[in-house]
């Protein structure tokens, strides 16, 4: 009888010991990670100065319609008639013929302001973030068109699928209070 009692208590001691060790392990892991943690919330964003408009944003987002859209820093725009973000920059003769339009989705709206200036606005419901216009604008224009992750669409994946696919590592975590990395007149 006595022996049996002892046996049980030994097992209990072992059990409690291992439990304590596990609890300490979980608490320790928590403490170490907490010391590295910041209460701040982070979101994903594209650094426009690193972005090469390779086109991965259009295809690698987990959403069928990418959360990356082209945005326009109007203050940087030259309001050109022959916009190389709107018209194909390659043709021998750069002109305003309709077949020269660059955007595959027709997402850029061109409106006349005054001679010789035109304003270009992006229809985000049509834009797929392919970056063709960004490439054209950055190569030959002021670079006022650039890609940004739109936070009304982004689902905030734990690990951004485009960030993995990005060849320039241009997709970074930014504080949620300042969720955009905008271009300005440098």
């Amino acid at each position: 009888m006595d022996e049996k009692k002892n046996q049980y208590s030994r097992r209990d001691i072992l059990r409690h010991g291992v439990w304590g060790a596990c609890a300490a392990g979980v608490a320790g892991t928590g403490a170490i990670l907490a010391s590295k943690s910041r209460g701040q919330k982070y979101v994903w964003q594209i650094d426009p100065y690193k972005c090469t408009a390779c086109g991965n944003c259009a295809t690698f987002c987990v959403l069928q319609e990418s959360a990356v859209k082209c945005v326009h820093a109007y203050a940087m725009c030259g309001y050109c008639d022959l916009c190389t973000g709107y018209y194909r920059p390659e043709p021998k003769e750069l002109n305003t013929a309709a077949e020269n339009q660059l955007c595959p989705r027709g997402a850029i709206k061109r409106t006349y302001v005054e001679d010789p200036y035109f304003e270009y606005t992006i229809d985000e419901t049509k834009c797929n973030g392919c970056g063709k216009c960004v490439m054209g604008c950055t190569s030959f224009g002021n670079g006022s068109l650039f890609l940004q992750i739109r936070h009304d669409r982004c689902v905030g994946c734990n690990e951004c699928a485009i960030a993995i696919a990005c060849p320039e590592n241009a997709i970074v975590r930014v504080p949620a209070e300042e969720p955009y990395l905008l271009k300005d007149r440098r």
């Binding site: 030259g78 309001y79 200036y117």
Partner: peptide, 16 residues
């Protein structure tokens, strides 16, 4: 490359 224009018609540059 193309300096942003000064609009004579008083066109307001929109905000993003």
């Amino acid at each position: 490359r193309f300096p942003p224009p000064q609009f004579e018609s008083g066109h307001q540059v929109p905000q993003m």
